[in-house]
Nucleic acid binder design. Sequence first.
DNA 1: GGACGGCAGTGTTACGTATAACGTCCTCCG
DNA 2: CGGAGGACGTTATACGTAACACTGCCGTCC
Lengths: 376, 376
Amino acid sequence: MTSQKATPPGHPPATARATSRDVARAAGVSQAAVSLVLGDKWRGRVSPGKAEAVRAAARELGYRPNLAARSLRMGRTRTVLLVVPALTTEFFARVYTGAARIAADHGFGVVLYPSPEGIGPSHPSPATTPGGRPLRAPSVPDPFDSAAATLDGVIASSMAAEALTALRAADLPLVMLDSDPDDARATATVNLDIASGARQLTGHLTALGHRRITHLAADVRSWTFEVRARAVTEALDAVPGTLLRRQPAALGVDAGLQAAHAALTGPGPRPTALLCDDDIIAAGACKAVRRLGLRVPEDVSVTGFDDLALALAVEPELTTVRLPAEEFGEAGMRALLAVLDGRPTQEPTLPVELVTRGSTAPPPAGPDNGARPGGQ
Amino acid sequence: MTSQKATPPGHPPATARATSRDVARAAGVSQAAVSLVLGDKWRGRVSPGKAEAVRAAARELGYRPNLAARSLRMGRTRTVLLVVPALTTEFFARVYTGAARIAADHGFGVVLYPSPEGIGPSHPSPATTPGGRPLRAPSVPDPFDSAAATLDGVIASSMAAEALTALRAADLPLVMLDSDPDDARATATVNLDIASGARQLTGHLTALGHRRITHLAADVRSWTFEVRARAVTEALDAVPGTLLRRQPAALGVDAGLQAAHAALTGPGPRPTALLCDDDIIAAGACKAVRRLGLRVPEDVSVTGFDDLALALAVEPELTTVRLPAEEFGEAGMRALLAVLDGRPTQEPTLPVELVTRGSTAPPPAGPDNGARPGGQ
DNA sequence: GGACGGCAGTGTTACGTATAACGTCCTCCG
DNA sequence: CGGAGGACGTTATACGTAACACTGCCGTCC
């Protein structure tokens, strides 16, 4: 009673952290018993009474296990690495959020490794040299040299796959996001149903009557973009009388603008729809359309991909494919946890959803337009 | 040369990590000597020849110190916590990027703690998950319970200050970002010159001729927003004949739209300029203006704050204040490192810059300096 | 000539945890 | 009645590192 301070029960003196031995002393047991009880492995080893005493003492002292000691003892750090192209990309920020949530639920931490060749859509930074050699960022250290030196596993986006090979993660469990299921490096793979999204998008455009479509394709070598390109091609091949062209576009608003400009002013009949590999490129494409004195969607329809916040910020709001980014990160982390536990991982491909908004409409009626605006 | 394996020098066998004792054995010295040499504290304790031998052996074996052991021994983890409202906010993603870079340069790691009340300005997030389950994370754990249990310091945004009090970080060095310099909790404070930015913005509008300005003020209790409001008020007080009103706005595109709608349709003369607390609100405001049949900037000027990628994605491009987000994170981390080293911290207030773009123009001509345009 | 101090190192310890190995009793059953 | 085992705990150890305390040794100075 005299020792009772005014501090709430959750707030111990906080001067020096209590150790498991302090708890043991307070509960009148040995340190080993504390470890057993708090580790929930005391079935027939400690009496219920003492177990409760231990828990009470731990609570009273505000005991938190020293993770450094635990890691040292166990040889595992309960820390995983998430390798993404860039965190300033909203999509990957959301992936991280989902992954971190699941990780935290299991007592794991997530450290980030933005790959050196990471593409920052926010600022126009040249990502790679023409030779394909990744431009080494000034000070992106090997995460295995940094504070996260000891890792239990890795989750990596296919967009950062190249950075992976430079990493010394050779023997770590590796979950790859949105990548080739046959990739030998991956212990497991978690995918979004990108192909379905691309098909839905293409189907939406053709149903509106579009026949001349230009695909503003991200010029990033990555499984996910290859899938988009293939799905778009196949879907349009199935519709007679279509003309698909492809215009490479770097990532970013400005790059999207330039690519769209090229697509709209190039030789041949002007496309009536621009199918963009992500919302950011699409935003740039919208700007390009209007700079040419045309309107979105009356003259040119534009579609995005990802359903970022941006899709609702621009006008008209973008028709796009919603990717469940948080769930994606969650699934990736769950898969990795399963691998770490030795459980079989059976992660399904996550469904995506077409979101129809104002940036798409039937193509304008025109003499040389192979399709009827109201057709369908 | 005969011992040269096919593996590159940087890639050791990678089977089991070499320990400092392995290095000692290989170099023919004791483990203590290895620790001294690699810790760079061997001035007169180890001969240069042996020191070089140790370094060579370490390189050969690909030795990486076990950080768990080091942390346990030293009582410091070389890990700091960054508390931000939400990572999906581009601004804070960039702050993190800067902080992480400096941290890595000094062998530190950064773990993230998105505060529970974190605002997700990204999506209409209110509810719309197909499954209908609450997206708001029910499981944001105390970071001191999570894998980052042991921390050396904390950097916290003023926008997440409330979360801080719930944290048990009582005795940790704390650097606060953009917050009241008199905040007693902070060991040090690093600020952006927000007031200057707000003044520049206000001056820009008044110079264009605007007199009726509504401030779409973020309804988040936070030092940084209080400063903006105060600076705007004072700047406009200095210009005779101005009418400043204030409309609270939640964060997010949709909230900005609603607030702007209220501001434009409310009683009294319609404002000719909307000064928004961030670019996202401004994007929503632009939508509201157009939905009322008005034009940006001819009928209503709109300004943002932050200079996110979004500012260039919407049309017209936003006049805004560019905040050096990466540098902000870098400065915060540097300040924390100084505190940890016991050095005096003397971080200047970082300058900001007005960026004039297409969303601002002189107010429409009218009876008394910008009255409402006739018929609408 | 012996005391002394700086160099060049090594042996040892402790950090806090998890767990294997080891004792007790006590009960139950043949 | 004796021994087998379960319930209940404790002791001891190892994880890899940093740092303290100690030991020779050699050159120097009084």
